[in-house]
Design a protein around this nucleic acid. Structure first.
Lengths: 154, 154
DNA sequence: GTGGATGCAAAGAATTTGCAACCAA
DNA sequence: TTGGTTGCAAATTCTTTGCATCCAC
């Protein structure tokens, strides 16, 4: 299997993710590296199916994508995001600042929001006795291009 | 079909939801009323399957539950919430304050957080040109009971 | 009476699993 | 060499759809 995408083998983010894989006791296989490169290259949440579309030409099965992503999520290399319709996307998080998204409910474009006013609330949750606290925050709306020409319903 | 749950027909929240149904041009059927009562009675997000388990004895089909919930969501009677594993829950929102949840990733217990520091950010999103802006924020963690006896990993 | 809603069954998506072959360590 | 991984196929689970019947209005 040849390796797709423009991310090089010595890419620091890739190296870091590979290190996490190894530390977790996993093997660094070609499908995993290929999927990691796709995740790193796409600087936004991506669908399982989209990942598969880019690796299947290299003989990587859909089941393998599911299994790899599940492992990445467990290790903390990716995190799961949600579309308002309930479908899941996955985003590479290693070495990236914590942030949130604005998702257009019309064209599904994803933008980042760098401000996070929520971190403080995690302490509140911690104080309620919760451990391993995390949060997910997504904004949904209709982006400018999509609402152009349409009546503003809000 | 007899009507389940402890919610009475003259319950104000039920009345309000029924009004929204009618205003949206939908009919007030027995399955819909039964599902609404279950949603109102359960003061937390609930799974489609759980709803079905409580109405199927009254002859309400799973497909009907899906169709009703989809209609309720469109009208704004319920909203979709997410579990960290990607599954969807639905919560009755009519007449209830905007709030968020703490979900135990272990026992899946759901608690409410009444503070919402996020509303202000919606303006920011609006200023970026987005319309019909909404957001979803969920906290995940391991609750006190679940982590008791286990080492604190965080 | 009439069109929207339902039950049933079947189709379609999304995700998981079993297992022999494979390959990273 | 050897056990973790993969590809393939099949099984599950989740969700949607078609259609005749039903019932809210």
């Amino acid at each position: 299997m040849s390796i797709p995408e423009e991310i090089r083998d010595d890419d620091p983010l890739l190296q870091q993710a590979v290190g996490m894989l190894k530390k977790a006791g996993h093997r660094v296989t070609q499908p995993r590296v290929a999927i990691l490169k796709i995740l790193i290259h796409k600087k936004a949440p991506i669908k399982i199916e989209d990942i598969h579309n880019r690796v299947k030409k290299h003989n990587c099965d859909l089941a393998t994508v599911y299994r790899c992503i599940a492992a990445f999520e467990r290790i903390g290399i990716v995190r799961r995001c949600f579309f308002p319709d309930g479908s899941s996307l996955f985003e590479f998080v290693v070495g990236r600042e914590h942030h949130h998204h604005i998702i257009c409910t019309c064209c599904q474009k994803v933008e980042n929001i760098d401000v996070c006013v929520v971190d403080g609330l995690e302490r509140l949750v911690h104080n309620r006795g919760y451990r391993n606290v995390s949060h997910m925050l997504e904004f949904f709306g209709v982006c400018e291009e999509c609402s152009r020409g349409k009546p503003d319903e809000n």
